[in-house]
Amino acid sequence: MRIGILGAGGMADALGTQWARAGHALMVSGRDPGRAAATAATLTAAARAADAPHGLPATAGTFEEAAAFGDVVVVAVLEEAADQVVRAAGPALRGKPLIDVTNAVGPGAYDVTRSVAERIAALTGGHVVKAFNLCHVDVWRMTPPVFDGRPLAVPLCGDDDHALGLARTLVTDLGCTPVHGGGLDRAKLLEATAAFMIGLWISGADAQAVLPPLPHSGPHPDEP
C-alpha cells in the first residue's frame, strides 16, 4: 500500500515506522522539508532493519505530493493546523481514503458539536476514518501493543467501506485489533472519549480501570 502522511512529527514517525516495517511505501510531508526528510530516513532505516517485504525507501515531499502519492492519506498534524494542512494538500484528497489521528486537547479545545474528522471530510471531500487517537505516541512504537496478553483494540469510525478496509489493514499491521465504532457521525464521541481519558491520565488515574471487562458489561444484542 502507498501511504501519504501529512505531518512529520511523533505520530508520523511512530505509525510510519510500523507500516514501513510491514512493507508499505510511504511519503512524509511537513512544513519543514528538513524534518520531513529526516523522518523519511528513519522510516527507511526501520524498513531495512526489519527486512521489510518490498524494501521500499520512504520519501519526503510537500503536502500536495504526499496527498497525490497515497492510496490512503494519514492526517498526523496538530489539530489546530489540520484545516490549513489539508487545504495545502489540495484536490488530490477528494474522494480519497483519509485517516484522521488528531485530537483537540487543552481547556476549551474540544468542540462537542462537530468532530475534527467531520471537519476534515467537509474540507477535503475525502472518505475519512477516525482512528489511532486514543493512545500516547509511545504506544504506537510498541511491537506489538499488547497489555496483559490482550492486543490493543483500535476503534474506527467512518462511512466508506473501502476506507474502513484499508484502515483495518493498517491496524492489524501494528499487531492491534480493529473495532468498528460506527459511522463518521460517531467520531465526535471517539474524540470526546480521548479528551476525557487524556484528562484522567494527566491527573494520574488509571483510565483503563474505569470500564469493566466485557463479561461484566451487561447483556448484548447477539446473546440469547
Rank of each mutant, 00 (worst) to 15 (best):
I3M: 08
I3W: 01
I3K: 06
G4D: 02
G4C: 02
L6I: 12
G9L: 07
G9C: 11
G10K: 14
M11A: 05
A12N: 03
D13W: 01
A14N: 05
L15D: 06
G16M: 09
T17V: 06
A22D: 08
A22P: 04
H24V: 03
L26M: 06
L26C: 08
M27F: 01
G30M: 10
G30F: 02
D32N: 15
D32R: 09
P33R: 09
R35P: 00
R35N: 12
A38T: 13
A38V: 06
T39H: 03
A40K: 01
T42G: 06
A45Y: 01
A46R: 01
A46I: 05
A46V: 03
A50Y: 04
D51S: 15
A58N: 05
T59Y: 00
T59V: 10
A60T: 10
A60H: 08
T62I: 07
T62M: 05
T62G: 10
F63R: 05
F69H: 08
V73G: 04
V73R: 00
V74E: 02
V77Q: 04
L78D: 08
E79V: 05
E79D: 13
A82L: 07
D83R: 13
Q84R: 14
R87S: 12
A89R: 02
A89E: 01
G90C: 05
G95R: 09
P97G: 11
P97C: 10
T102P: 00
N103Q: 06
N103W: 07
N103A: 08
A104C: 12
V105C: 08
G108W: 10
G108E: 13
A109D: 07
A109S: 14
S115H: 05
S115Y: 03
S115W: 03
A117W: 02
R119D: 10
R119A: 11
A122I: 03
A122W: 04
K130H: 02
L134T: 13
L134K: 01
C135W: 13
H136D: 14
H136I: 12
D138P: 02
D138S: 15
T143H: 10
P144K: 10
D148C: 09
V154M: 11
V154C: 01
P155M: 11
L156Q: 04
D160M: 09
D160F: 01
H162T: 15
A163L: 08
A163Y: 03
A163V: 00
G165F: 00
T169E: 07
V171T: 09
V171G: 05
T172G: 00
D173G: 09
G175C: 11
C176F: 02
C176V: 02
V179Q: 13
H180P: 09
G181M: 08
R186M: 13
R186C: 10
R186K: 15
L189P: 00
L190F: 00
A192S: 06
A194R: 12
A195N: 10
G199S: 15
W201A: 14
G204S: 09
G204I: 15
D206T: 12
A207Y: 04
A207L: 03
V210L: 15
P213W: 11
P215T: 14
E223V: 00
P224V: 14
P224L: 12
